[in-house]
Write a protein that binds this DNA or RNA. Structure first.
Length: 284
DNA sequence: AAGACGAAAGTGGTTGA
DNA sequence: TCAACAACTTTCGTCTT
């Protein structure tokens, strides 16, 4: 199953994957070697093993266990301890939240059949977001879905927000809000959705021959030259182009079928392919 | 009967005051 | 924050295969 893209390219970029991993914490590491589900049950850090409120609180009253006053030296010590502990707790909370988020990301990635580099990138993004305090006021899962979507966009793995929303409990709007916040505050480099990557995905989903796929790419190229692409929903463009390409190669698809696959209405497909056909003098 | 067509009104997202 | 705007959707009657 050549699931759109990703897997194929993935084998070419092993090095990138490798270097990406360097700045990942230890808890992340074992996430990477369990593609085959065998270790699904054993996340890197078992969140259940984490402290569940069993931390010590150092008493504010300046007495020792027997109720005696503490010497100034001892007081200082106690004070330092308290402060160190507060810091640790904060850090712990963040770490814990992070590992939950990573589990969330893994779930999403596996439900969506995403290549590993996507989930890795997502985790990195989440980590950064957490560092920059972008999670405040948002749900962990919301941000997790947003990192996954953002990673897909950055790596040109075609997945829509709808598709991601479908396998999570987060709706599109919330995901979108988090996504926008991510891309703004982490100044992410998000390229516009490239029709080419969509062609590759949907051509195979429609079971079109590779000849037809090639035709589609050609039509796309010519359409781009004539500025028929920008400002339009890329899925409409791709639907229309695939419809045309299929027709030209006698692999006739119904508009409905194409429309359903690319998730756009027949009307839009019609409008697009009419326009493209007219501008490029494609007879159909 | 199924698919294609396109007009017209409605919807949601973007943009600029 | 609001209104204008373009792209897209919904709906539906009609034409074509």
């Amino acid at each position: 199953l050549d699931d759109g893209k990703g897997e194929i390219i993935c084998s070419n970029c092993g090095k990138v994957v490798e270097s990406d991993m360097k700045d990942l914490g230890p808890d992340w590491r074992s996430f990477n070697d369990d593609e085959q589900d065998s270790r699904r049950g054993g996340p890197p850090i078992d969140p259940l093993k984490y402290d569940r409120g069993l931390t010590t609180n150092i008493n504010r009253k300046l007495k020792d266990g027997k109720g005696n006053q503490l010497s100034p030296k001892q007081r200082k010590k106690a004070f330092k301890l308290r402060r160190a502990e507060r810091r640790n707790k904060k850090k712990d909370a963040k770490e814990r939240s992070l590992s939950f988020a990573i589990i969330e990301i893994r779930k999403l990635a596996s439900a969506l059949n995403l290549p590993r580099r996507v989930s890795e990138k997502s985790a990195n993004l989440y980590r950064r977001a957490s560092k920059e305090n972008l999670i405040r006021g948002r749900s962990r899962e919301g941000v997790a879905t947003a990192t996954v979507y953002a990673s897909c966009r950055m790596l040109e793995v075609p997945r829509t927000m709808e598709e991601i929303a479908e396998v999570s409990s987060i709706d599109r709007k919330e995901m979108r809000r988090s996504f926008l916040s991510l891309s703004r505050n982490l100044d992410l480099d998000i390229p516009p959705v490239s029709p080419a990557s969509l062609i590759s995905r949907y051509a195979s989903e429609l079971g079109l021959s590779s000849d037809t796929k090639q035709t589609a790419y050609k039509i796309l190229e010519r359409s781009q030259e004539k500025n028929l692409v920008t400002g339009r929903n890329p899925r409409g463009i791709v639907g229309a182009i695939l419809y045309l390409a299929a027709k030209q190669n006698d692999e006739e698809q119904t508009q409905r079928n194409v429309a359903e696959k690319v998730n756009i209405t027949e009307v839009t497909i019609r409008n697009r392919f009419r326009e493209i056909g007219r501008e490029l003098d494609i007879d159909y």
